[in-house]
């Protein structure tokens, strides 16, 4: 005969598990609220710190392309001009260039790893990509400015000579005064974001069900047709997410871009010209700023923040629409 469990004990153990349950629930809730609170605090203090700039420079900051924060020779305008457009332009251009180079390369590597590479090769390549991801961005920046930028100057000159004459396109490939320009910064930035886009895409491609691939194989698909028919439609959302993470890093990257792109505040279609991006400007100018100038740097932070949020929202809309189209309303 087995002993009956003590009913009191049974009840107390149940009560204990309930306490554990509630504690767990509370911890999760706090963690969840903390995320929102931190985000709110950052945005709130950014905005409050930038208020002086809004009072003095006003919305002119978002429309003016000129940047004259101080005027030592006193031969310029009467007061400082805080036009931020050139910095936003620099951030956008360098990020677009980075994506143009990084996305095809990353997706190529990820597809190679998931669909083509033998298991052993796969492990080795993944290790190297992870190593690439762990290189500090300042090292990328130094390498870019000391090695890559000078090496690319002849290439830029050749491109300018070959393509410079074409009416509209030619304006993108203008004179290359030095290797420190939008293009070089974009290329080095691309190298930096390739690992993150690759490793996320790889995981996404890995989740494509075997049954979907077999469906394509059974119709007589070649490998590329199988990838186009099964793997890519299935992983569209995840790949967009991977690209967005890469873009987020590219837009926020500070030291690399500041080193490689130089500090020319200008809006020019010439990709071989120097530029200035928002994060680089913040870090370079913060030390010598005060008063309204500091507040203007805060506005740069707000602009960067808003740009990333808008891009993420846009990506969500794109993914949502694609999923509805491909997987039905339930997706």
């Amino acid at each position: 005969m087995t002993q009956q469990p003590n009913p009191a004990l049974a009840m107390s153990s149940k009560a204990r598990s309930r306490i554990a349950d509630r504690t767990f629930w509370a911890i999760c809730l706090i963690a969840g609220i903390a995320v929102l609170a931190i985000l709110g605090l950052i945005l709130g203090s950014l905005i409050s710190q930038s208020m002086p700039a809004f009072r003095e420079a006003g919305l002119d900051m978002f429309t003016n392309t000129r940047w004259v924060p101080n005027d030592p020779d006193a031969d310029g305008p009467a007061g400082p001009i805080y036009g931020l457009l050139a910095f936003a332009y620099g951030t956008v251009v360098v990020s677009i260039i980075a994506l143009i180079f990084a996305v095809p390369v990353s997706l190529g590597i990820a597809l190679f790893l998931t669909e083509l590479a033998p298991r052993r090769v796969r492990g080795t390549v993944v290790t190297f990509i992870d190593l690439l991801a762990s290189v500090p961005s300042v090292v990328f920046g130094l390498w870019g400015v000391l090695v890559v930028a000078p090496a690319l100057v002849p290439v830029y000159q050749w491109l300018h000579g070959t393509l410079g004459g074409i009416p509209v396109l030619g304006r993108l490939f203008g004179e290359a005064a030095s290797g420190r320009n939008f293009m070089t910064a974009g290329i080095i930035l691309a190298l930096m974001i390739v690992p993150i886009i690759t490793s996320i895409s790889r995981e996404v491609f890995d989740t494509v069900p075997d049954s979907d691939k077999q469906a394509a194989w059974a119709l007589g698909a070649t490998r590329w047709e199988m990838i186009k028919g099964s793997v890519l439609p299935h992983s569209f959302g995840g790949v967009v997410g991977a690209i967005m993470l890469g873009l987020g890093r590219a837009m926020g990257e500070t030291i690399l871009v500041a080193l490689v792109m130089g500090s020319a505040v200008q809006i020019t279609p010439n990709l071989f010209a120097g530029g200035y991006a928002l994060p680089g400007a913040i870090v370079n100018l913060f030390g010598e700023s005060s008063g309204t100038f500091t507040a203007v740097l805060m506005v740069m932070g707000v602009v960067l923040f808003v740009m990333t949020v808008l891009i993420n929202l846009l990506a969500r809309v794109i993914v949502r629409r694609a999923e509805v189209r491909m997987k039905g309303a339930t997706a």
Binding site: P209, Q214, A215, A218, G220, M326, K327
Partner: peptide, 15 residues
């Protein structure tokens, strides 16, 4: 496979 087609256990339409 183009001449000998296949239907699988689990319905697997493409997305």
């Amino acid at each position: 496979r183009r001449r000998i087609g296949m239907v699988f256990q689990k319905p697997n339409p493409f997305p």
